[in-house]
Amino acid sequence: HMTFVALYDYVASGETDLSFKKGERLQIVNNTEGDWALAHSLTTGRTGYIPSNYVAPSD
């Protein structure tokens, strides 16, 4: 899985969403939902949907 870094803070709007903080590292599990991606946080160990425009690929 590619690793991504959060560009902004995001507060989950539902139970299936994943909250994260700017700078948090995430792995995209499934990116077939258009503007949303299923992601796993390497920081918190949690998995949920995130807005895909809130993250960018990290080196």
Rank of each mutant, 00 (worst) to 15 (best):
K21Y: 07
G14F: 09
R46N: 09
F4A: 05
S13R: 14
F20G: 02
A12R: 04
L42E: 06
K22F: 04
N31E: 10
A56K: 11
Q27Y: 14
A39P: 00
L42N: 04
V29E: 08
I28W: 04
H1S: 12
G45F: 05
G45E: 03
V11E: 12
S13M: 13
I28Y: 05
P57S: 10
G48H: 03
K21E: 08
N30D: 13
D35E: 13
A56Q: 11
K21P: 01
Y8E: 08
L7S: 05
E24H: 03
D9F: 02
H40F: 12
V55D: 04
D35Q: 12
T47W: 13
K22Q: 08
Y54L: 13
F4P: 00
L38C: 12
Y8W: 11
K22M: 07
F4D: 00
T16E: 12
A12D: 02
V11W: 10
D59V: 13
F4T: 05
G14K: 15
S58A: 14
Y49C: 09
M2T: 11
H1L: 13
A39L: 01
G45K: 05
S13H: 11
G45L: 05
D17Y: 14
E33D: 13
T16I: 08
T16W: 15
G34P: 07
L26T: 00
K22R: 09
L7W: 05
D35K: 12
H40N: 06
P57R: 09
L18T: 05
T3L: 12
A39Y: 05
E15Q: 11
D35F: 12
Y8C: 10
D35W: 09
V5A: 03
T47H: 07
V29I: 15
T32F: 15
Y54T: 05
L38Y: 13
T3Q: 08
T16K: 13
T44K: 01
G14H: 11
D17S: 09
T3N: 07
V11F: 10
V29T: 07
S13A: 12
E24M: 02
L42K: 04
K21L: 09
P51A: 02
D59C: 14
S58G: 10
L7K: 07
E33C: 14
G34V: 06
P57F: 11
P57Q: 10
S13G: 09
T3I: 15
T16V: 08
N53I: 10
L38R: 03
A6D: 00
F20Q: 00
F20K: 00
Y49N: 04
V11R: 06
S13E: 12
S58P: 09
S41G: 01
T16Y: 15
Y49D: 01
L38E: 04
D35A: 13
Y49A: 03
V29Q: 08
L18G: 02
D17W: 10
V29R: 07
S58R: 06
